[in-house]
Design a protein around this nucleic acid. Structure first.
Lengths: 214, 214
DNA sequence: CTTCATACTGTACAAATGTCCAGTATTTAG
DNA sequence: CTAAATACTGGACATTTGTACAGTATGAAG
């Protein structure tokens, strides 16, 4: 996917922001007016460039028919109240094979949609849901059947719940520091309590939790 | 708020569905065409009626500037994978005044977006989020800061967590039956454990729970 | 019966809007 | 230097679109 020029990104952002703030995409002339173009053609040219590069969709002949095609991360920007919310679709995995789920759509058990602000995540980060099995995290009030929303590639802070890969199995543990060294702690007395962090691979940090009625 | 006629509701639904499915509100002529009107004026008249009754907003002079003002079933249908998902926006209240929140937008603390399937709710039912204060539901692994998604107008089943109004305060309790009589149980030893159900008003049943990272 | 609201038809026009053509700088890549 | 891409100006035109005015028909309310 080609990159955008600075100007093109400005145009795209303007279209997005108009859609977000007013719930209505701008016209070519409104774009031109905002950037002080004296002709709608400059706007047209930019829009065409954006379409060609796959960042925008435009239905020819129809007013205000701009659709920002989200490049990074699937997601949508929805009108909401006065402003807007950004939602991402998060796949739910029952178990995660070694490594990161690339396109493990087979193992997928479903989906949750979450608004970005609720989670406080960056839409660029890779996020997935992990169905909790067993009661290893009871001490953190996480029970069987809960869906842990896990974000990959985030530095865990002490006390965070993390998803770690141990013996090919993904488990939730608490990330802690002791004497400057990182450890993982299981939150249930029946499990080995402390694991040195070197022995395993942290898949991600839990940023949210979703629980359904049973 | 006045009621809509059957035809007006059809028009409103069409505008909504167009916005949902195509991401673009229709023009007067597109409305007319869909209903086989031979003039855009019929559409105009209906839109004006909808605006007057407060179900729709329209910016005069601007193309496709329709905004369905969510009366009851706010929500969107998003493309998702092969199919689509329906999402609703759920307001979060820190506290709920007596009665049901009608347009208590002042007390609102934010919003969560949840896909309907995850919750298994009927989009018509009135749903809201309730920010949990304190640890009265620790026994059910619900902690301070959690957001309980509560659905109004649903019959609670024994064992369900319900939101109940006691002394003007909304509290979460467990709904149980004992000898055929309904009771509410607090899930923390420091609280009075059993309350006969007659003394209070059940606001709704918790259908889901959302927890953010602190 | 009359009055009113609802639900349209038909014509028309002006404003909003998309889009084409022909240019001019400026920058970037080779 | 040359060619191509980018970033515009200016004018023009055809559609799309919103909207006003003038009617017709129907059913409900009084």
């Amino acid at each position: 996917m080609k990159d955008l020029t600075a100007r093109q990104r400005q145009i795209l952002n303007f279209i997005r922001s108009k859609q977000d703030s007013e719930g209505l995409a701008p016209t070519f002339r409104e774009i031109a007016s905002h950037f002080r173009f004296r002709s709608p053609n400059a706007a047209l040219a930019h829009v065409q460039a954006l379409c060609q590069k796959g960042f925008l969709k435009h239905l020819p002949g129809r007013a205000r028919s701009f659709f920002a095609l989200d490049q990074e991360g699937s997601g949508w920007t929805l009108p909401h109240g006065r402003g807007s919310v950004r939602v991402v679709s998060v796949p739910i995995y029952g178990s995660i094979p070694a490594g990161l789920p690339q396109d493990a759509s087979q193992e997928q058990e479903g989906c949750v949609l979450i608004d970005v602000e609720t989670l406080g995540i960056k839409p660029t980060a890779r996020t997935f849901g992990l169905k909790v099995r067993g009661d290893s995290m009871l001490g953190r009030n996480i029970v069987d059947g809960d869906i842990a929303i896990v974000e990959h590639g985030v530095q865990p802070r002490p006390g965070d719940v993390v998803a770690a890969l141990i013996d090919g199995q993904v488990t939730l543990k608490t990330f802690i520091m002791q004497r400057g060294k990182p450890y993982l702690r299981a939150e249930n007395p029946r499990y080995p309590s402390l694991v040195p962090q070197e022995e395993l691979q942290i898949q991600g940090v839990m940023v949210a939790l979703v629980r359904k009625r049973k």
